[in-house]
Simulated scan of single mutants.
Amino acid sequence: MFSKKDGFVSGIEMGARLFKEVGLQVTGIGKDGDFYSAGQTVLEARGSAEKIHSIYKTVQNILEYSSGITNRVRAITKQIEAANSKAKVAVTRKHFPGTKTISLNAALLGGAIVHRAGLSESILVFDQHRVFCKDPVSAVRMAKKQEPEKKIAVEVENEEEGIQYIHAGADIIQCERFNPEALKAFVVKARNIRNDVIINAAGGINDTNAYEYALTCADVLVTSC
């Protein structure tokens, strides 16, 4: 198996394990997350045609899916570095069912952090939750008191909402689809209120605009790549 074009390749170790699972002999294996030139072999196995055909397409799909994620994350982290920013790239849970391990491993190899591996890791307060709550700001204050060990993340759509939830004690303000100018202005105001609040930028962030968002001084750029 070889790369059709220059780029970073991931999913190699998982592919090797699958080859061995069906009885193939792995005779060559590259390193996950490394850069490979077009035509360079990343994984090689030998065995009967029957065994090869039973598994090679699955391995190919894993390599392609994983490498796509790794390369997109690498492109974003490269823009953050160019902006001389300390922001982290965080990947969301928007993966195909059953592919969490593959997706997260590929993202980590690209230099990302995991936004959250499961819903129980933090308290999420999104618009989908607030519409069922008479007083969501008070609810956040209550959650802060009842669950002092958990981070409370609140998604907001404008500056006014963000300020409200900072005063309510939210640990993370996730700014949904703020443009870079609005986000930069909000970060300054948020820091003046509470310097410990974490500011996430989310919604439409990719390898074409990460540089502009990195310049806002947000702590985390959240993306599904």
Rank of each mutant, 00 (worst) to 15 (best):
V9K: 04
V9N: 05
V9H: 03
V9W: 01
S10H: 06
I12W: 01
I12D: 05
E13A: 13
E13C: 07
E13F: 11
M14N: 14
A16H: 02
L18D: 08
K20G: 01
E21H: 13
G23F: 07
G23A: 04
G23H: 03
G23V: 03
G23R: 04
L24W: 05
L24K: 02
Q25L: 12
Q25N: 14
V26C: 08
I29P: 00
I29W: 00
K31Q: 08
D32T: 02
G33H: 07
D34F: 11
D34S: 12
F35A: 03
F35K: 11
Y36H: 04
A38F: 10
A38P: 07
G39A: 02
G39Y: 07
G39N: 10
T41Q: 11
T41A: 12
A45L: 03
R46S: 13
R46H: 10
G47M: 02
S48E: 08
S48I: 05
A49L: 14
A49P: 01
E50V: 07
E50Q: 13
E50Y: 12
I52T: 08
H53T: 10
S54I: 01
T58R: 06
T58N: 13
V59Q: 08
V59I: 15
Q60M: 06
Q60K: 10
N61H: 10
N61G: 08
I62K: 07
E64T: 15
E64F: 10
S66A: 15
S67Y: 09
G68W: 09
I69L: 04
I69E: 02
T70M: 12
N71A: 10
N71K: 08
N71W: 07
R72M: 13
V73M: 07
V73Q: 06
V73R: 06
V73E: 07
R74M: 14
A75K: 13
T77D: 04
K78D: 14
K78E: 14
K78F: 08
Q79G: 06
Q79D: 11
Q79F: 04
E81R: 10
E81F: 09
A83S: 03
N84Y: 09
N84L: 05
A87P: 00
A87Y: 00
K88N: 13
K88P: 00
K88Q: 14
V89L: 01
A90M: 09
V91Y: 03
V91N: 04
T92L: 12
T92I: 11
K94P: 01
K94M: 11
K94T: 01
P97E: 09
P97Y: 09
G98D: 10
T99Y: 13
T99P: 07
T101F: 15
T101C: 12
I102R: 12
I102E: 15
I102A: 14
I102Y: 13
I102S: 13
S103W: 10
L104M: 15
A106D: 08
A106H: 06
A107G: 09
A107V: 13
G110V: 06
G110K: 10
G110A: 08
G111Q: 10
G111H: 12
I113L: 08
I113C: 12
V114N: 12
V114W: 01
H115M: 04
H115W: 02
R116A: 11
R116C: 06
G118T: 11
L119D: 03
E121N: 15
S122R: 14
S122I: 14
I123Q: 05
V125T: 00
V125H: 03
F126R: 04
F126P: 00
F126V: 00
